[in-house]
Simulated scan of single mutants.
Amino acid sequence: MNNDKPTAFSVPVVDISAYVQDGTPAEREKVAKAMDDACSTVGFIQVTGHGIDDSVTDGLASAMDDFFGLDLESKKGYKVEGANRGYTAPKTESLSLSAGVEAASRMNDFFEAYNVGVEARSFTDLDLDEGDYGVNVWPQIEGYRDRVQTYFAEASRVAYTLTSIFADALGLESDFFDRITDHSIDVLRMNNYALPPGTEVTLDGDLTGMGEHTDFGIVTVLWADQVRGLQVLGRDGAWNDVSPADGALLINLGDLTARLTNDRWMSTLHRVKPPVVNGTIERRRSAAFFRDGNADAVISTLPSHLEYDNGMAYEPILVTDHIAAKLAGSRGGKLNAAAVREAARLREAATR
């Protein structure tokens, strides 16, 4: 029997309810094994059994609608200079620069976004730099803050559950990820893929909703509309469409987890190519919760994974330095020269 026949790309589905609902050791072992298989083959996972109620995601979606429905000038009033917070207008970022690749046109990603996150002052017993964590600004919209913070807390819980599964899947101490995330740089980025009315765009061109990139940190928890647009770069070098299943969250690994595992668990490259329907761009919303790790944590390749990637381990890196280099690319327009492996995968895909 020939087992070399290529198979269609798919995102594995992992039910994590055994960790959410205190399952048996055998049930948890099964989940950890499934997670290891998913992370080592695709790097994107459809997660079910996460325990976030529909009312929470509905509240998040309505808060996003309320804010992104404002006129552009009102939204620009919530822009925060030099910080990973507040409003980002269309065509002011270029995510591919964070992955070490020049975009055809710089700062051309047409999504708009709003960022909130954990603040340094939340950790009263630590002397943390606001430059790493940021200070939130909240739109003056009734109920906005409560709806967003309710979802933020739930996404944070899911991220914690996932890193517990990761520790078991990798054979690590149960508190391994706790030690590098107990004052993590956590950010919720709410994205809207629809150009403001009156914006000129060439619909037959190569539109970029969000450029090719990897996520920066440890794990990303993504809620998204079931509207096509998200594409994931498979290990065969082809781009594949991905949309969340009913009730599922999309989970992907960040660069720091890839560094820990020496790319056995890869930080998968992805992008958003906006769908065009009847000559107009179909609206798409997503909200990405990033667990990026403690600013002062040093990330090194795990001793158990030194033999992967031909024995060429990543150099240890301070989380704050890694995040700064990535943000300087996406938001500052500076090519991230340190993203060597990501750039190589993108260039290889471009030749196929």
Rank of each mutant, 00 (worst) to 15 (best):
I281H: 02
V272N: 01
A287S: 15
K273M: 08
P275K: 12
G279N: 13
F290A: 07
S286F: 07
A288Q: 02
R271D: 02
S286T: 13
V276M: 10
F290G: 04
T280D: 13
G279T: 14
V272P: 00
K273Y: 04
T280V: 15
A295M: 11
E282F: 02
N294K: 06
R264L: 15
R291E: 11
W265S: 13
W265F: 15
R283I: 00
V276A: 08
V277Q: 08
R284H: 12
A295W: 10
A288K: 02
M266P: 00
V272L: 04
N278T: 09
R264T: 13
G293F: 01
P274E: 08
I281K: 01
I281W: 11
R283V: 12
F289C: 00
G293L: 04
A295F: 09
W265D: 08
G293Y: 06
F290L: 15
R264Q: 14
I281L: 11
N294Q: 09
G279C: 06
F289S: 05
H270N: 11
V276N: 07
A288V: 09
H270E: 13
G293V: 06
D296M: 01
V272Q: 00
R264E: 13
S286K: 01
P274I: 08
A287I: 10
R285G: 02
S286C: 07
A288W: 03
E282K: 15
V272A: 05
R264S: 15
R291L: 11
V277E: 13
V276K: 07
G293I: 04
T268Q: 10
D292R: 12
P275C: 07
A287Q: 08
A295V: 08
T268E: 09
P274H: 08
S267H: 03
D292E: 14
R283F: 01
V277M: 09
F289N: 02
R271F: 00
R291F: 02
V277G: 07
D296T: 03
W265P: 12
V272W: 07
M266W: 10
A287W: 05
L269A: 04
P274Y: 10
E282Y: 06
T268V: 13
V276F: 14
A288G: 14
F289K: 05
R284T: 06
